[in-house]
Amino acid sequence: MTQVLETEKKTEQVGHSQARLIFGRFVEHKIALVSILIVAFITVLSWSVVGVGSIPGWWHLTYNQLNPLIDGGRPTMSVVPQWLGGEGVFLGEHPFGQDRIGKDYFAMTMRGIQNSLTVMFIVGILATVIGTVIGAVAGYYRGVIDAILMRFTDLIIIIPVIVIGALVGSIASTLGGAIDGPVILGILLGLFTWTTLARLVRGEFFTLREREFVEAARVAGASDARIIFKHILPNAIGVVIVAATLLMAGAILLEVALGFLGLGVRPPDVSLGRLISENQSSFAHRPWLFWWPGLFIITLALCINFIGDGLRDAFDPRQRRFRPRRQKKVLK
């Protein structure tokens, strides 16, 4: 009788999962894509230059060996090709120059980047896992468990991140030696930087657990673990991933700030922040010592922020803007 009215289209096609849609939207975000390439490039570059563990990298100099000063330590790299009137494209003996005592600044910068990235990845993974678990449990169970976990989170949030970082940095340097410096620093920082993420995840769980599909799963007999991991978490993953990206950008900046304050990774190892701190007084004479580490810090942090932005757009396409093909003049 009323079938006439059913205006629903019934076309035969294979479904597109959310993941594929999100990926499709992310790929549209050109800046984020380029950012991923840049971060990947810098990561590969730094590790391959410095080497992993006992395997040496391809660069012939190491970050702690002393070399004779060449041309006052100026960078030897040239990027302007000859046909443009430059000197050609080459690296030279010390592409990024040398510091006051002749260490190769390219090797030092790459080592610093490697340390920063190590800290970033460890903090990113550890804090994300801790924050997600705490946030998920608090948001899902609510009540007393939530109260306890959130008060605990509040306790840690009260202490400014940089203060915790500074303390943790000193602890890391007293513990160092046995374990690799940046690794232990990353682990310690990760233990204290999950708080924002936990709050976000909790908030997301709070709203998601009220959604009817969660109730439906409960009626279907799903266990708590299944509801949390199979039903709620996949829907909260956008929040987690975006927050994790921002967390990683924050971790890089925190690591270099600690290095700048003389905490965290200790000499003879290298930190980008420490490079800047040690060389700020020679800004007038050897500006490159200031610019190289700064350039890489900003590039990394900026790229990771852009990736986060791209992911946010991909997961939450509401704020995308309208770009008409042509804005026809409307007749009045």
């Binding site: 959310q18 439906a216 009626v219 299944r226 039903h231």
Partner: peptide, 19 residues
């Protein structure tokens, strides 16, 4: 809101049977 956006229709319908 009553269907999990991340599960296919088949998975949603089949969940009670599976569980």
């Amino acid at each position: 809101s009553s269907l999990n956006p991340r599960l296919s229709i088949g998975d949603s319908i089949g969940e009670p049977l599976k569980l």
